[in-house]
Design a binder for these strands. Structure first.
Lengths: 148, 148
DNA sequence: TTAATTTAGTGGTATATGCCACTAATAGGT
DNA sequence: ACCTATTAGTGGCATATACCACTAAATTAA
């Protein structure tokens, strides 16, 4: 049973979402620590590899993240030589992103750790519930709240 | 149908959680903007009021948040005169938190805006799905991943 | 074609959040 | 009482993430 202080916040969709994110982020971060990557960084590397040389805007859209936030997030990864950017040949405004060899190796290491963490979570939550959750979360990420 | 770049990330519980948090946070932040509070700040003020003069550690636990992170988060609210801290009379290590009159008024304003945002989300998601989601998220926030 | 508009990214600033090292104060053990 | 271990918070540093104002490049309109 949740304690009263915990429950006081449980009516707000956003607040409960953030709280769960802190908890789960903590767990994945701990699991990935041996790789030297944060969970967000691992996810970012994975996505860069999956999309294959995405433009920054495409990456930001896939992450449902502000473009400038993505730029800031990439900085430590570039600094550490895991990621590099290069100009698009067609459109000189566009900057594309790819993993370096070091980034690719680091991702391989991190993925093994991720797998264990993911497995652990699925056991604790149950695979069906986890799948349902991800579906709901994907729906939220794509909601159209309307412009104005 | 989600686009491939979007879907590339949808297998990780943590990544989908963060992505949905960005999206929903955006929406609640926009809705609360007229109050001058971010959604996280509104949630924090609400919780401080609900628990009634909580010690910082209690507040951090309720938020499933690192104690030092809470300290940092409180700073702008204290600076803006919405929140104040005071020493516990029993245990001089303990610092308690309460709303100021200004904070209380600000919260009232923010709560009206929150209500509209919350309602909007519930309409888009459906009340049952939203309730189920919050339940799942509360469960996650209380998971025991084991010490080690 | 030139001018106006839209699009892609950058850099600054602010909040959100975590870890670590450190201090102060309480609690426990002898 | 005294020494040790635990607990509550602080401050510094690093990443995560948003908004804004700005630049450069491409697209559209006149």
């Amino acid at each position: 049973m949740p304690q009263a202080p915990f429950t006081a916040m449980s009516l707000c969709n956003n607040a409960t979402l953030r709280r769960a994110t802190r908890k789960l982020g903590q767990f994945y971060d701990d699991a990935l620590a041996p790789s030297g990557l944060r969970a967000t960084q691992q996810g970012l590397l994975y996505l860069i590899k999956a999309i294959d040389e995405p433009a920054m805007g495409v990456l930001a859209d896939a992450l449902v993240m502000d473009l400038s936030a993505l730029g800031h997030t990439l900085k430590p990864l570039i600094r550490d030589g895991l990621v590099e950017t290069f100009a698009d040949t067609q459109d000189r405004r566009v900057k594309r992103v790819r993993l370096t060899a070091a980034g690719s190796e680091k991702l391989d290491v991190a993925l093994k750790l991720w797998m264990v963490a993911q497995q652990h979570v699925e056991e604790l939550m149950g695979k069906e519930q986890a799948a349902r959750l991800r579906e709901t979360l994907d729906t939220i990420a794509q909601l159209d709240f309307g412009k104005i």
